[in-house]
């Protein structure tokens, strides 16, 4: 038995998706059915954070989530994050800090940081916020500017 239809709200727009196999992951649904290729596949094992999206406002690994398990959820990807005030602030902070090298990890970092700032904001000590970004890896090791962007996005949320 395959549930017939999945309903997601993706970047604010309701989306009905038919005939999704039960073993399909949200990452693949976003990229290949909805054409939202800003969400990146890195390790596909939950270790790198490149596929992070927001599910109901919370950072989630789309490579470790069956699309059917997300039925009814509100999903935000890098394509839609600029409409969120916190997301906008994070994008601007990455821009100002030049916080990318090859850019592959950037969508995941932006989504993870937006999720963290929406959850805790300034109430989370800065060291803890940086620790909480530890689930995202940058293979270029461009961490100095990413950390600078994260600090400044947090400060501007005052």
């Amino acid at each position: 038995m395959t549930p017939s239809e999945i309903q997601l709200r993706v970047n604010g727009r309701p989306s009905r998706i038919d005939s999704v196999p039960t073993d399909e992951r949200l990452l693949d649904t976003l990229r290949w059915r909805l054409g939202l290729k800003g969400t990146k596949e890195g390790c596909r094992t939950g270790m790198c954070g490149a596929c992070t999206v927001l599910r109901d406002g919370r950072g989630t690994l789309s490579c470790l989530l069956l699309t059917h398990e997300a039925d009814g959820a509100s999903i935000t990807t890098i394509e839609g994050i600029g409409s969120d005030p916190v997301g906008r602030r994070v994008l601007d902070a990455f821009d100002a800090a030049g916080a990318l090298q090859c850019g592959y990890c950037t969508p995941g970092f932006v989504m993870a940081l937006t999720g963290l700032l929406r959850e805790g904001g300034r109430s989370t000590p800065v060291d803890e916020m940086l620790e909480d970004l530890g689930g995202n890896l940058c293979r270029c090791t461009g961490y100095a500017t990413i950390v600078r962007a994260a600090r400044s996005a947090r400060e501007e949320g005052a």
């Binding site: 950072g59 989630t60 690994l61 999720g115 689930g135």
Partner: peptide, 9 residues
């Protein structure tokens, strides 16, 4: 345990 995103799941 894991990362924040992993712990959300």
């Amino acid at each position: 345990v894991g990362s924040v995103a992993l712990r959300h799941q």
